[in-house]
Design a protein around this nucleic acid. Structure first.
Lengths: 107, 107
DNA sequence: TTAGCATATAATTGAATGCTTATATATTAA
DNA sequence: TTAATATATAAGCATTCAATTATATGCTAA
């Protein structure tokens, strides 16, 4: 059983607007780093660092394909994280609210 | 519908070991401030400030009775917070792990 | 009213956090 | 090999945050 301390570490990651948005988008499909860079108004290293934190707590998985790195949600074994994400808006709702163009070569 | 930003604000509160423990204990019953002061290894103002944050996001409710102030959980209208707390250990598990004496005049 | 206890608020401080820019690494293609 | 693109890491900085001590407020009882 996970300790409260460990749970708090994971929840802390959800307590950031950017990371919560990333996880919400990841409900729909995997995303390439370069797509996130286009969507979020922040530098590529900032995006990369958020993803690293999510990976360090096992909330996402990373898969390199060619020069691109794709991240996918990995919360099947974390029911309460799943419950939180289920309660968030859909990925497309979030995306349309952001009103960003995504044009990467990654797809 | 709550925005991702608002949800992140609430989740940030859960992302702290002390506050997550407080909320977990509050699943069982209401607690007096003085009890929390005895349980947690921190000053009374620190406890008070954590409770104020939880109250500011509507996660707990406050009730003064005499010179004591009691806090109770208020998450019936926040299903994903409820889901998180349901996944945490029971209040008595947490309490016995803490191995603290509580002897306040508040009960 | 005064003293004593419980709680809240204010001010301060050190640590953690989220960003930035600069640089390193990895992959692809010429 | 070299250049270009994608991503990660390092270093630095500003802000946030969780604690502390000191003080204010609120209630009870003498």
């Amino acid at each position: 059983m996970e300790t409260l301390h460990e749970a708090a570490e994971k929840l802390k990651l959800l307590g950031d607007r950017t990371r919560l948005t990333m996880l919400t988008l990841l409900k729909d499909r995997e995303w390439c780093v370069c797509e996130f860079v286009e969507i979020f108004d922040m530098s590529q290293p900032a995006v990369s660092q958020h993803l690293r934190k999510l990976k360090s707590q096992g909330l996402v998985r990373e898969a390199r394909r060619g020069q691109w790195v794709y991240y996918s949600l990995h919360v099947e074994d974390k029911p309460y994280i799943q419950a939180v994400l289920d309660a968030m808006p859909t990925g497309s709702q979030v995306l349309s609210a952001m009103d960003k163009e995504i044009r990467c070569a990654c797809d």
